[in-house]
Write a protein that binds this DNA or RNA. Structure first.
Ligand code: ZN
Ligand code: ZN
Ligand code: ZN
Ligand code: ZN
Lengths: 161, 161
DNA sequence: GTTAGACTTGTTATACCATAACAAAATCAG
DNA sequence: CTGATTTTGTTATGGTATAACAAGTCTAAC
């Protein structure tokens, strides 16, 4: 993930938080302290964060440390489209396209655990069509691909050399 | 799932078990009593079965009732390619194509919870290509679609009428 | 047939993931 | 201010999965 890792990640966080503020304001939703902080903590990296990892971070900062605290924040952020859940990892990831209606398709690196969200309308269309062939009306899609990201493939090559 | 529900499901079970025997024999793997019975129980329907549901059924039949019993059987069956895990449901499903190398792509009905496994080489190829565009080397795919199956769409239409 | 090694199962304990239910506090609209 | 609504606190519980080590079983070589 060279292009990804080289970036100034503060920009990612700032943009995500600004988008969140805007979206919540527009929809009359309240981005309370704990929700806002949860979102920031999730955005600390491009790696999915587990609910209890997040809970521990929140607790360190003085927020309530019981599970409902974190699951409520997560529910809110999920419903607002500000984060995604990675089903195959039981973990949560900030969404960089919260302002656009979309499905979350993910590339997950087995090595560094960074996750890249990608968009692929062609695949979505194919899936809808394929489902229809089976008489199936599609409602939701879980598309989670794992493997090696560019950086980690590079590393592997270096080690071999 | 009209075509699916109309079938003689004993054939599904018989075929699955016969395939399992053959595969294990060919690979020098032992399909022990608990593994074999676990596979049969998973195949009791085309709905995914949770680990603890399976454990309860095994316990009723006199098998050990501690979690490792069922997770070991599941690990074995997963590794042998005889079952799949549905990540979005934390549940396990018999595979009807265990003898062919393949990815498990699933159509999951929100209403009746039946799951249909489908194969779609086009989509696989597109995903590999898309991943490569991002410098990503694909290793595994989790493709789980939910919605309404043909049967349940029919029901819904009848109710409206 | 005995024995050593590998594999499988038994057992206990624990960690991790998620929600139910109800009480208290904060916020908002009128 | 006040009543309604939303959010948060608190306790308890349910669901999913694995670690660690002991005991039993199978297999193959001797
Ligand atoms: Zn970033
Ligand atoms: Zn997204
Ligand atoms: Zn069947
Ligand atoms: Zn399959």
């Amino acid at each position: 993930m060279s292009e990804e890792n080289a970036h100034n990640h503060n920009d990612c966080i700032d943009t995500a938080l600004a988008t969140a503020e805007t979206l919540c304001l527009a929809q009359g939703q309240r981005l309370t302290k704990v929700r806002r902080r949860a979102l920031e903590l999730i955005w600390e990296s491009h790696r999915p964060l587990g609910a209890y990892q997040l809970l521990a971070k929140l607790a360190e900062e003085g927020f309530n440390s019981a599970p409902p605290t974190v699951y409520r924040a997560l529910d809110f952020l999920l419903n607002a489209g500000l984060i995604h859940k990675v089903e195959s990892m039981n973990a949560y990831l900030g969404c960089a396209h919260a302002d656009k209606e979309h499905k979350g398709y993910f590339l997950i690196c087995d090595e560094c655990h960074n996750v890249m969200e990608f968009d692929y309308q062609d695949i979505h269309a194919s899936l809808v069509a394929k489902a229809a062939q089976h008489g199936f009306e599609l409602r939701s899609e879980t598309i989670e691909l794992t493997g090696l990201c560019a950086d980690c493939r590079g590393m592997a090559a270096e080690v071999r050399a």
